[in-house]
Nucleic acid binder design. Structure first.
Lengths: 241, 241
DNA sequence: CAGTGGTCTAGACCACTGA
DNA sequence: CAGTGGTCTAGACCACTGT
């Protein structure tokens, strides 16, 4: 199967699903197929591009996953009215995040206590009964400068072994990843002001704007941990699409 | 075509790609296949589950897309060491965002001027020559309360028709979507402090922590627009995975 | 160079849903 | 009911890449 160029469309060349996807996408971005318009069905497109229906199907399915088109049985495929697009952000492990910037990573445990689960946390984690939790405060540094403040609660009812773990060298994030590698989570991003304690740890002024990531984690329906990560002022989370 | 496949690993039912995916996922979350471990190849899995290789392939490909496993030709498929996971956030149109909460949407144009492109913007948009831009400031209200502040710059070299458009009734976002429905974009999230002007518009105190979304948009390599959306203090962007 | 995933195909049947 | 997408299959060849 020879391929002379990237030109396809209706010249009888065999197309890959990538060719089909990008050609359809360009038809959409160039306005040939405007928002809301009905596109040809899979059989017709397969004939147009000289490929099997499965190939067209994969291209169209990816376009649907990307939020570019909307598909419904019997009704066909339409270009979305509003490019209801989703942005995918990488949520990395702090250590990797820092090392990828070429900086030296340092971790430090600030405090470690066992407390009764406070009411606000019980609500967030959807716990019914009161129990105990391990409360950890840690700092992550990049090249010696404060980078991220970690305020973590671990549900001891679900993870009793956390009580005897040693968090002086290994951060709770990495300990959790090695203990329960995969789980369900809810992530929430927000902006907040640095209070006295946070500003002292981050080395910024009281009242600075910090970017905060909160994450709630469950495993098999059981609440494991809540963490609030506060970044140095000026931190950005960026992505392209 | 009779299908009397015996054993496929668990019960005796025929497997769809969803079955395969969720079964594999549960093997991973339950620790049966730990981080870094090599998984059986597609042919073996197909035999195990009593389905075609293409079915296994789809399940595994989705697991790879989800960041659960890592695949390399010849090397096989491994469970990822760290669940390098990505979070997908919906980036909705303000109007929809507000209306979906059941609130009444109101838009208001604050100011509209034509200015030379400032240096910081030229750098962000990767523009080489100086040019003019349309600078718009708008507010979006939910049930009459300030919800979002929009500070937008439109590159008039790329979109000259913006200069004569009327933004008193229709917001620039919706105008842009109807003019250039699909484009490339870079999105960046951060936290900032409300300055005097912003706090007046949002009705919050000076120095409040606002969640800001910045978006740079290109179409066919040409910079179209930069926008900074500032939300009412307390705003959150949430997702599950 | 051999093993593994990546993709395509032609055909089939199913599931949903609009007219 | 009939049209459209959703999925599965069995087989084939290709593209990488570790050994």
């Amino acid at each position: 199967m020879l391929k002379f160029n990237h030109d396809e469309g209706h010249n009888g060349m065999k197309s890959t699903y990538r060719d089909v996807k990008s050609d359809i996408l360009s038809k959409i971005t160039k306005g040939e197929w405007g928002p809301g318009s009905l596109m040809p069905n899979e059989v017709e497109l397969a004939e147009t591009y000289g490929c099997a229906r499965a190939t067209v199907n994969r291209a169209m399915r990816e376009l649907a996953d990307d939020g570019i088109v909307e598909r419904r049985r019997k009704a066909g495929t339409r270009v979305r009215m509003a490019p209801l697009r989703q942005a995918r952000f990488d949520i990395p492990i702090v250590r990797c995040e820092i090392e990828e910037k070429g900086a030296a990573y340092r971790y430090s445990l600030v405090s470690q206590t066992v407390e009764d689960v406070p009411d606000w946390l019980r609500a967030r984690l959807k716990l019914d009964a009161g129990g105990r939790a391990l409360h950890l405060v840690c700092m992550h540094y990049a090249d010696g400068a404060p980078y991220q403040h970690e305020d973590r609660w671990i549900n001891l009812a679900a993870l009793p072994q956390a009580e005897t773990a040693d968090f002086r060298e290994v951060g709770p994030n990495e300990w959790l990843v090695s203990t329960i590698p995969f789980s369900d989570a809810e992530i929430s991003l927000s902006a907040a002001l640095a209070d006295k304690s946070l500003s002292a740890h981050l080395g910024c002024g009281v009242g600075a704007a910090v970017f905060a990531v909160e994450r709630l984690t469950w495993w098999e329906g059981q609440a494991l941990t809540y963490v609030r990560l506060s970044y140095q002022p000026g931190h950005r989370l960026t992505t392209r699409y």
